[in-house]
Design a protein around this nucleic acid. Sequence first.
DNA 1: AACACGGGGAG
DNA 2: CTCCCAGTGTT
Length: 358
Amino acid sequence: MNNYTFAIELVRWWEANKRDLPWKNTKDPYKIWISEIILQQTRVEQGKPYFDAFIRKFPNITTLANAKEDQVLKLWEGLGYYSRARNLHYTAKYVSDSLDGIFPSSYQDLIKLKGVGPYTAAAIASFAYNLPHAVVDGNVIRLVSRILGISEPVDNPKVHKDINNFVSNSIEYTSPSSFNQALMDFGSMVCKPNNPECKTCIFQSFCEANIKNLVSQIPIKSKKAPRKERYFHFIDLRINNEDTTIIVQRSDTDIWKKLYELPMLETFDLRPLIELEFNNKLQEIFGINDLNFEISFSKRKLTQILTHQKIHGFFYEVKVNNKLEKINPPYYLVKRKKVSNFAFPKIINDYIRTAYNS
DNA sequence: AACACGGGGAG
DNA sequence: CTCCCAGTGTT
C-alpha cells in the first residue's frame, strides 16, 4: 500500500470515528503540552481526571511556573513516572522566565525542552501548529509494524526508523493534526494489542500481518524485564500523645523521585528488623541518644508491583515517649491528620488509608 | 544501546 | 500472573 492511500483512507476513517477527548478542542500549546506529558506511558482513561485537575489548578504557563514543586507532585500523586511532573514544572519556569512565556512553536525548539522527546515534540507541533511531524508512539508502532509485516523486534532502531519513515512519508498528503490523531485513534480503537478488529478493518487487504496471518505475533518485542525484589521497612512513628508522625522526602535518584514516605530502612533479603537497627535509625532521625520508644513489630505488610521491581513493604509502629518539637530536614514532623497534604507513593497511601482511620 | 522509571486495566 | 499503555532521561 502506498503512503498516499494509507493517509487518505486513514483520515477518512477518522472523520467518521474520532474520539472526543478533553484536550482535543484547543490549539493552546500549553494545554496540549500538559496532556501529552500526562499521557506518556499512560492510558487515556487514567490520564483524563489528572488533566482536568491540572488545568483547573494551573490554567496557564504562568500559574504552573509560580507553583511549588510539592504542589505539582501532589497533583501528580498516583500517576507514576514522577520525573514527568518535575520536568513539567522545570520547563514551565524555563518558558516563563527565559522565553517571555512564549511556548516554542517549531519541532526543533520543542524537542529541546526537558521532558519533551521525539513523540511529544511531534504531537505539539502538529496539534498546536499543524506542522507536518508524524508521531510515533506505541499505537503507531503496533499499527505500522502490522501493516508492513515487520518480523523483527520493534525495539530495533532500524525498525523504528522504518516506521518513522512510513508515517513521515504519509503525513504530507493530509492535514498533519488530523493525520496524527487518526493514527493514534485507529491504533487504540481498531488495531488494538489484543483481538484487533481485522474483520472490519479498512486496511485488511493491504495489511501484511493480516494477509500472512501474523497479526497476533506482531509487533515482536525482544526483551522482557526481570523484576528485582526489594524489602522496605517503614517506621510509622507515634510522637507527642501519638497525634504526630514523621515523614521524609525521597531523593531524585531512585524510584518515587521527591515523593514523601515514612522513615525507611531497606534490607536486601526477607527478614525483620532487629532492635539495634531501630535504635540506629531513630538516632539518625532525632539526633539524640537517650530515646525512649516501644516497637510493635510488623503491624502490616503490603506489596507493590513496579515495572522492574517488586516492593515488599513492612510497616512498624513505633511509639516514642520523648517530647519532641523540632526535627531537621529531610525529616518532617506532621500531624497524622495532615499527612494527606503531601504526595506519597501508592504503597504509603495504601498503608495510611487503613492505619490512619481518622 | 540498554536500562530505569509507576500505576492501572485487560486477558 | 503477563502485557501494555499518547516515552523520556540517563548511563
